[in-house]
């Protein structure tokens, strides 16, 4: 449901390491990307490319797994049988997306075991928005519609990237997300055009989620050497600001047309067609992403419990003669 090339978490003084790469192989690699060809797992690739893509696809996979938790909690309490079924189908999709993405990341050399360990040990990140709770059904609807909408903006951009296995996974994921978006929109419209109590519940949920939604694409990119290289290599396909503008342009009108308001007095589209808004609280964003959010502990604890409770099944099925085989494509 999420896939952002978060170059902002690369240490500022990290070197690109390009001076250590074979110049001939590097030139061939760059020429292939410039021709519009995709990179496949067995191709030579620079360390920076491998490292950044691994981090990005892995974070995307974690976000699918963790992102299914705040919505999953509403399956049993969704109003009506049809909504329970639809919510369940959506959550099942998200977990399926994680499976595809872990495999794509594995083709770069990091094992799935290591990625899952890094998730429960807090070493790797997932989309920060999932560190906030869904106290009402309306909060779950906001995720289904607007967080998925943000994710689609991201994913459609990334699907044009240069790494073959990630593109293959994203093509499939984007097709399924179409249902999520429509389903989420339907649920929000239903509440917003419903009784005064339903409407109030939806407005309050939107007010709670809006600050997090505005941070979804990350802070403005500092145009560093890294960013420039990653854009040339088609790892990062659009700046965070460009994604945010596209999201605002597509969805703010849809929010306003159903009579909902957004809790930002400065939000407006100027004469140049650019959206203006109050700068999100990036200090708070940093604090939450580093572990001090309302739900960080719960999300990781639930993931750990799932890992521990499933261990006996894996042990029982384990084959002593098994050998690790990396996915092919």
């Amino acid at each position: 449901m999420y896939g952002s090339a978060s170059t902002h978490d690369i240490p500022a003084k990290a070197t690109t390491g390009l001076e250590n790469e074979d110049p001939i192989l590097l030139a061939e690699f760059e020429a292939r990307i410039a021709r519009g060809e995709k990179i496949e797992p067995t191709d030579w690739m620079p360390q920076l490319y491998r490292k950044q893509l691994t981090r990005m696809i892995e974070q995307h996979a974690h976000s699918e797994i963790i992102g299914s938790l705040p919505e999953g909690t509403w399956i049993t309490r969704a109003p009506g049988f049809r909504r329970k079924m639809a919510q369940m189908a959506k959550v099942q999709d998200e977990v399926g997306h994680a499976q595809l993405l872990y495999s794509a990341a594995e083709t770069l050399g990091k094992t799935r075991e290591q990625m899952l360990s890094d998730l429960v040990n807090g070493k790797s990140k997932y989309s920060n928005v999932f560190n906030y709770p869904t106290p009402t059904w309306a909060d779950s609807n906001v995720i289904s519609w607007l967080i998925d909408a943000g994710a689609i903006v991201n994913q459609l951009a990334n699907a044009k990237g240069s790494y073959g296995p990630y593109c293959r996974a994203l093509d499939r994921i984007c097709a399924e997300e179409a249902f999520h978006l429509k389903y989420g929109h339907d649920a929000v419209v239903h509440m917003a055009t419903g009784t005064p109590i339903q409407r109030k519940m939806m407005q309050e949920a939107l007010n709670r989620w809006w600050p997090a939604i505005m941070t979804f694409f990350g802070p403005s990119d500092k145009m560093s050497t890294h960013t420039e290289i990653l854009m040339r290599w088609k790892v990062k396909m659009a700046t965070n600001d460009a994604c945010r503008q596209q999201f605002l342009d597509m969805y703010v009108p849809k929010i306003w047309e159903i009579g909902l308001t957004l809790p930002d007095a400065n939000l407006r589209k100027n004469e140049d067609g650019v959206w203006e808004f109050s700068e999100p609280d990036w200090e708070d964003f940093k604090r939450v992403i580093n572990g001090d959010g309302p739900c960080n502990a719960e999300r990781i604890a639930v993931r750990r419990a799932a890992e521990e409770n499933g261990a006996w099944v894996r042990r029982a099925m384990q084959q002593p003669q098994a050998r690790y085989v990396r996915p092919l494509a």
Partner: peptide, 19 residues
């Protein structure tokens, strides 16, 4: 779930089904 869980150990290699 415990409030302050201990840090789990890393998964062992091949702690999953083959593909």
């Amino acid at each position: 779930l415990p409030d302050a869980p201990s840090i789990p150990t890393d998964k062992v290699a091949l702690d999953q089904f083959p593909t």
